[in-house]
């Protein structure tokens, strides 16, 4: 399949990536080249084949419900680009 310019913009929006004018064409070309390559998977009939999510069978270990507080307030907020009174600060979430 061929990815259109509009699709590139739509994917970029879903992924929250702002693309420059010049980048859009480049990504379109790269994605189409890669998708052209991966299209070879269509050669394979995979009817009835179980998809693999985990290559190694794992017997899931669960946590006991015990609470602890490992991180200090400094550790929690220390890397925040902007903070205020213990909160992370961001541009307004809902626009009016």
């Amino acid at each position: 399949m061929e990815i259109s310019r509009e699709q590139v913009l739509h994917i970029a929006r879903l992924a929250r990536l702002r693309l420059g004018e010049d980048e859009v064409a480049g990504f379109q070309k790269d994605l189409n080249s890669i998708l052209g390559y991966v299209d070879k998977l269509r050669e394979l009939d995979t009817t009835g084949v179980e998809p693999t999510t985990h290559a190694v069978p794992i017997d899931g270990v669960l946590r006991e419900d015990v609470a602890d507080q490992r991180l200090s307030p400094d550790a929690i907020l220390g890397n925040a680009p902007q903070k205020q009174e213990g909160y992370f600060r961001v541009p307004k979430v809902v626009e009016d």
Binding site: L41, L44, V49, T52
Partner: peptide, 12 residues
């Protein structure tokens, strides 16, 4: 994606 996971099974 799902196709790739199926081929992953075949490779395994």
């Amino acid at each position: 994606y799902r196709k790739a996971q199926q081929v992953r099974t075949l490779i395994s």
